[in-house]
Design a binder for these strands. Structure first.
Lengths: 224, 224
DNA sequence: CCTACCGATCGGTAGG
DNA sequence: CCTACCGATCGGTAGG
């Protein structure tokens, strides 16, 4: 056999395990990923699966990390094509809504689900989720500050308030789409995100059939 | 023994089981409520616990229903003292934030947790959660319509958009408080809720130490 | 990576 | 409401 075969195969096997774990966890939760079921799904023995990670908790951490990588690749990285500040924030919102609408994870936003599941369970998985969330909020806040420095947003805007609201709208959209199966959630969140950023409403998306009024003024998330 | 004793005891026992199930479920999720653990916690046999409900799923439904009753008693019922429309909406927001801040459930908002846990698991528990969420959104929308009819809000306000945003802010506050342990989430949500309703900022709550600017204009959640 | 196994716990049932 | 039990599955280990 080729000298690299076992290493390459091992990496491939690991990726297959993680990919399946992400699918299961996005629907059943990270705690719902059981080693026996995972082994049967990827046609391996339990010991074979567990051997890659050591413990279930390590498997959960690696699964979470891979899911965060997907979120980053879907929402953050494509937004780097836009310049820092308001245009990048607008790009993030577009990609974020698209990520939720397309159902990148079968069970809806993985990070929201993991956040709810582990918000009161102490331990390394909780810490990893909280760190990822804090990092994302800080990233959004940094872009708001850049927009202020660019003169695109008034100095009255509070970066923490804007980040809080954008994140809240994304969670609301995820709930509408996943729990209620209500596609209007994406448009409601999209409108709200653009309003928080003081951006005009874009060409109409699929939304309610209600009569439209002229658009309102931007909604400032001001400092207190 | 008194003729009513067994019935009263049975009811009391049932309440003890449900009360414990709510505590467990708010931290570990509804799926994390196991009959054996519940039995041990309330000092009964597994068969004794299960006999009350028949199946685990029925126990989950009854636990959910009891949690919804608590939410209603904490947030909705005290708001009925305010007249329909804007003043009732303001009261709902106050009680909602207070409910989240006080940690009425040990694991944070039970309904948000259950919504995340069951958003992609079909079945009667999913339906019960979705029904409860739809009812709550419809309740908020009805109050927005009343506020419009009262002339307290402009006809440009979209009731569905307002309800969506209020709910999103509550979820954001819950995440900040539970996942991050960040008490500022309550003030951020409170400010955002009042802004959506066009209400002035109230006397300062415990919030950030940042310098304050004069308050901004109300944030209209207008029809498209 | 495998087979074979560990003790613990799961939801649920039989029989009283 | 109890004891006693069912088959299934859990996370994890021994030994190779």
């Amino acid at each position: 056999m080729s000298p690299r075969r076992s290493t390459a195969d091992a990496e491939h096997t690991r990726e297959r395990i993680i990919a399946r774990a992400i699918e299961i966890a996005s629907v059943e939760g990270l705690e719902g990923v059981s080693i026996g079921r995972l082994a049967s799904d990827v046609q391996m023995s339990k010991a074979g699966v567990l051997g890659r990670f050591g413990t279930k908790e390590a498997l959960q951490r690696d699964t979470l990390e891979a899911a965060i990588d997907i979120f980053r690749a879907e929402v953050w990285e494509p937004s780097l094509l836009a310049p820092p500040g308001l245009r990048r924030l607008a790009a993030i919102c577009e990609h974020w809504i698209s990520y939720l609408e397309r159902g990148v994870f079968p069970g809806g936003c993985f990070l929201t689900a993991a956040s709810c599941e582990f918000d009161d369970r102490p331990g390394p998985v909780h810490e990893a989720i909280a760190d990822a969330h804090r990092l994302w909020l800080a990233t959004l806040e940094a872009e708001v500050r850049a927009a202020i420095d660019n003169g695109e947003l008034s100095r009255d805007y509070d970066p923490a308030a804007v980040a809080f609201r954008l994140n809240a709208y994304a969670m609301g959209a995820n709930q509408a789409l996943q729990l209620l199966g209500d596609a209007r959630g994406a448009a409601l969140a999209h409108d709200a995100m653009r309003e928080v950023l003081g951006l005009p409403r874009p060409r109409r998306r699929r939304a309610t059939a209600k009569p439209r009024k002229p658009r309102g003024a931007a909604a400032p998330a001001r400092r207190r």
